[in-house]
Design a protein around this nucleic acid. Structure first.
Lengths: 200, 200
DNA sequence: TATATTATTAAACATTTGTTTAAATCAAAT
DNA sequence: ATTTGATTTAAACAAATGTTTAATAATATA
């Protein structure tokens, strides 16, 4: 597919990324990776010192990609409401194509806590981005803006995480699930904006 | 601790459950389990045929416990609003003591899809429980009740799942996070009820 | 008590898996 | 063309891990 124009290290990274996301770190073997990349086994350790370091590299790049994307998304010249819609729509688009991403990231962050946090530089994210300041101003009295941002992410991301359970509990098939997520594309921003209005 | 009054199979199950939840299936070894249970290695395979079967047993019991709990919680003689508060409060209590539970369940459900769904009997859950019927009646026109139930679960469970990221992004410590979740105990029901009012 | 069943143990087995080694191949520079 | 260095390969190593075995101890049964 898109393997052709990548060098060996790139092939390995792409194959490893796909496998890590699909099966998790523990269930992905170096031989899987080499085979999927169409490359000799020893090259995995030749280009990346170890399986752990390969994982760390991929994880860092993935998360940094996320943050970078969020940064540009929230700092352009749209209105507040448009930014809300953008965040929701953007993550729904992403997760429709890569539904395993959140579980992978969250569970592997738990398994490799040392790799994260510090290396990410997300600790200052809240302060740099204008969106959060706008959000803080619009928050009802006594409600910390982080609550609202949590809600926005929750309502968007969680359905993808819980999809297996939700599908089983409701009898939805994949198509029905996707239609539901399309509805949420407009519903979530409405719910979110209504949370900003003072509770009566 | 509570090991004393358990038979060997019980010790193994308790140790395995703790380790599976804490480290996931892949990173938990049968030797870990035997050691933690204070029991000979071979007994793991003696009482449960294999590591997979041990996992399957624990997983099934855990999920069935969840469903059973949800069932009794939602079918008593409380008002609708009280039930909403009960669900939120109940899961917050649970997740405060076992924050790894959702990631474990959701990621392992993904890794052992065959074990789940059919065995769980959650497919009929939506239809049996009165709460969902009440919810359906209160839903605004054109909004499927599953959306609202998703939101309720999302806003309650997701913060625990995303805690590492959220903490890193905001600089919260554990205490601050717990205080935030205490606030959500009352906030989430308010947000939820406001979603049921027709959008203007 | 004698016997049969169950439970436990130490040891070994077989496979998997991350990693390394040493030789072979290729590419570029002198 | 030769040399130098990077890249690739097949093979092997060493450790970890799920599982089994065969012997021993404990418990119930007759």
């Amino acid at each position: 597919m898109s393997e052709k124009d990548l060098d060996t290290a790139g092939k390995i990274k792409e194959a490893a990324s796909q496998l890590f996301i699909e099966k998790g770190f523990g269930r992905t073997t170096t031989r899987d990776i080499a085979t999927e990349a169409g490359v000799n086994l020893a090259l995995v350790n030749y280009y990346f010192r170890s399986k752990d370091e390969l994982f760390s590299t991929i994880m860092t790049e993935t998360v940094q990609g996320f943050i970078w994307q969020l940064r540009v998304l929230l700092n352009d010249d749209k209105t507040f409401e448009e930014k809300v819609e953008l965040v929701v729509s953007n993550y729904i688009d992403l997760l429709k194509t890569r539904p395993d991403l959140p579980i992978f990231m969250l569970s592997e962050i738990r398994n490799h806590p040392e790799e994260m946090a510090a290396k990410l530089g997300i600790d200052k994210l809240m302060h740099e981005i204008k969106f959060f300041q706008e959000l803080a101003q619009r928050c009802p009295e006594g409600v910390h803006p982080i609550h609202l941002f949590m809600n926005l992410l929750s309502m968007t991301v969680f359905p993808f995480i819980g999809k297996p359970v939700i599908s089983a509990a409701t009898g939805m098939n994949d198509e029905a699930f996707m239609m539901m997520m399309e509805q949420r594309r407009t519903l979530i921003p409405q719910w979110f904006m209504s949370m900003l209005k003072p509770q009566e």
